[in-house]
Structures are given as C-alpha cells and as structure tokens.
Amino acid sequence: MNIFRLAGDLTHLISILVLLLKIYATKSCSGISLKTQELYALVFLARYLDLFTDFVSVYNTVMKLVFIGSSLAIVWCMRMHRIVKRSYNRELDTFRHYFLVAGSFVLALVVHEKFTLQEIFWAFSIYLEAVAILPQLVLLQRSGNVDNLTGQYVFFLGAYRAFYILNWIYRYFTEQRFGRWISWISGLVQTALYADFFYYYFMSWKNNAKLQLPA
C-alpha cells in the first residue's frame, strides 16, 4: 500500500465520519441527499460481492464492511429515524437517480472485462460511483447555503478519488501494472464532477467566507 492509496482511503473514511458526526450531533440531515446515499449503499453492495469469494487483507475486509455498514446506517437514519428524517430536504432532492442506476447497469453489461456476475457488478459499481455524487451536488446548488460539515463531507468524498488516481499513477510506475482502464476513466470522470465544487470550496476557504454555490 502506498501513501496515495492510504490518503485516499483515509479521506474516504473521514468523509463518512464527518457525515455521521453531522447527523449524530445535529440530529439533522439537512443538505444531505438521500439519493446519493442510496446510490453509495448500492455501489458498495455491488462491488464488495467479493467479500464472499476473495480475501486480500484484514484491512480491506474491515474497510469494506465499514463502507457497507455506514452507508446502510445513513440511509436507515434518513428514512426511518424519527427525528433525523424530519430535516430531510425531500422537495429539493428530486434527482432521478434511477436513471443513473439503469444507465450504469446497461453500460456494465456492454463494457466489462469478463462476462461474469461478479465482473459485471464490479463494473456497474465503478460506473455508478462515478456519478453517485450528482444528486448531492444538485441538492447543494438548489439550497444555496452549505453548512460547514456538509461542505467538508463533500470535499473529503471528492478528494478520495483524486488520491486514488495518484495511487494508480504511482502503481503504474512502480509495479508496471496498468490496473484497469475502466477504473481510470471512471475515476477521472468522478473527480472532474467535483471540479466546480472544489473551486468554490477553496475560494470560501481562502476568503474565510461561508461556502455558497451559485444557483
């Protein structure tokens, strides 16, 4: 494991912790897109089917379980928790996320490495993850004001894939392995979707001002 991969995993983990902290401390999920959370839960469930077939390391297994468990817990909170669900911005969170699921699945049926159940679900999870942030970004743009923890959450979630790209570049030179171009392209798309958000995040940080996204 290299430093970029570790940084990627840690920022991913931090993003989840920040989100859990926000929900736990404020008993509110305002500004958080349930659609994005559901997509992430689906991403992890589809990708980590290999929990049952392949063992890589204790680290990987624990992280996979944490990602699946936390994403399901967040979805549960936003749908079922008596207090938390009241603050959900249902009327702003109207992105048609089923189209993203359908589109990613069709793409996975067409573009994959091997025509096996696991490989198709793996490709599906990569494609879906690349676009899973869209409902969240749309929600933030609609609500205009972004509270501090929500801003941090999205920032860390975006930073994670950028670190993974550095990790793939590093591995390309050190291990002579190209990995899979499916993840390279999807990872680039995923990171590019955050470009706009990153810009306003850094501007607000530089100016010491509250993060606001233009409508």
């Binding site: 991969r5 995993d9 290999d50 392949d54 990987n60 992280m63 793996w122 392995r177 899979r180 993840s183």
Partner: peptide, 10 residues
Amino acid sequence: AEPNSVKDEL
C-alpha cells in the same frame, strides 16, 4: 487467476 492490481483496492 492472474494478479489484478485493481481488485486489491477498495
């Protein structure tokens, strides 16, 4: 199976 550099990631 051949080693796959992606499947050992998250």
